Amino acid sequence: MRHEVTDADTAVRVGSGDVPVLATPRLIAWMEAATVRAAASFTDSGQTTVGTEVRVRHLRATPVGGLVEVSAEPSAAVTGGRLTFVVRAVDGSGRLVATGEIDRAVVDRQRFLARTADPAGDR
């Protein structure tokens, strides 16, 4: 997935800093979107995935107008309903912007939504 950094993607706009470069929360959102796409092949009808853990190192700043290519590949740690993806972000010059892992859980969509709608469902 390729993204161009805009003013709306900066740390200043997102509130995660005071410099006009790609915000870490926006970068992680792009990485999570890549895992959603990559996880589709692990779900059956009526299932979806939800994020459960993010371990990302943001290594290099990307200015407004810069390009960032984000990828997510399943790791060997695919066990049952737990999926781990190796994520990477590379800038337009081929330099590593970020790397890490994101975990997702396969869930039944309707049961998940019903549980989140019922505050007593967590008890």
Score class of each variant (00 low, 15 high):
29 A>L: 09
83 L>T: 00
19 V>K: 09
12 V>D: 15
110 Q>E: 00
109 R>L: 06
99 T>L: 12
34 A>Q: 03
65 G>H: 10
17 G>R: 10
51 G>K: 08
103 D>S: 06
21 V>F: 13
107 V>L: 02
13 R>T: 15
15 G>C: 11
88 R>Y: 10
1 M>N: 07
42 F>A: 06
78 V>W: 00
114 A>T: 12
41 S>H: 07
37 R>W: 07
115 R>A: 05
27 L>T: 10
34 A>C: 07
113 L>W: 12
62 T>K: 09
112 F>G: 14
16 S>W: 10
55 R>I: 00
62 T>P: 04
60 R>K: 05
15 G>M: 08
120 A>E: 13
55 R>W: 00
23 A>M: 04
28 I>C: 06
116 T>V: 15
67 L>A: 13
21 V>I: 10
103 D>I: 08
88 R>F: 09
77 A>R: 03
108 D>Q: 08
36 V>L: 01
53 E>F: 08
53 E>Y: 08
105 A>G: 14
112 F>I: 12
114 A>Y: 04
17 G>F: 07
12 V>F: 14
4 E>P: 00
90 V>G: 03
112 F>R: 14
111 R>C: 08
93 S>N: 15
110 Q>W: 01
9 D>A: 06
73 E>K: 08
3 H>I: 03
14 V>S: 07
78 V>L: 01
88 R>N: 06
97 V>W: 02
40 A>K: 04
7 D>K: 09
120 A>H: 15
24 T>L: 09
24 T>K: 03
3 H>W: 01
106 V>P: 12
17 G>A: 02
50 V>E: 04
115 R>D: 03
89 A>Y: 01
83 L>K: 07
81 G>I: 09
31 M>Q: 13
4 E>C: 04
73 E>F: 09
96 L>H: 15
73 E>R: 07
15 G>F: 11
34 A>F: 05
45 S>G: 10
106 V>E: 14
29 A>C: 01
108 D>M: 08
67 L>T: 14
73 E>D: 14
75 S>M: 11
98 A>Q: 00
79 T>L: 04
19 V>E: 12
20 P>F: 10
49 T>S: 03
108 D>P: 05
11 A>T: 07
120 A>Q: 15
88 R>I: 07
72 A>P: 02
7 D>L: 14
42 F>H: 05
6 T>M: 11
107 V>R: 01
98 A>G: 01
75 S>R: 09
8 A>F: 12
121 G>R: 12
81 G>Q: 08
43 T>L: 10
69 E>T: 03
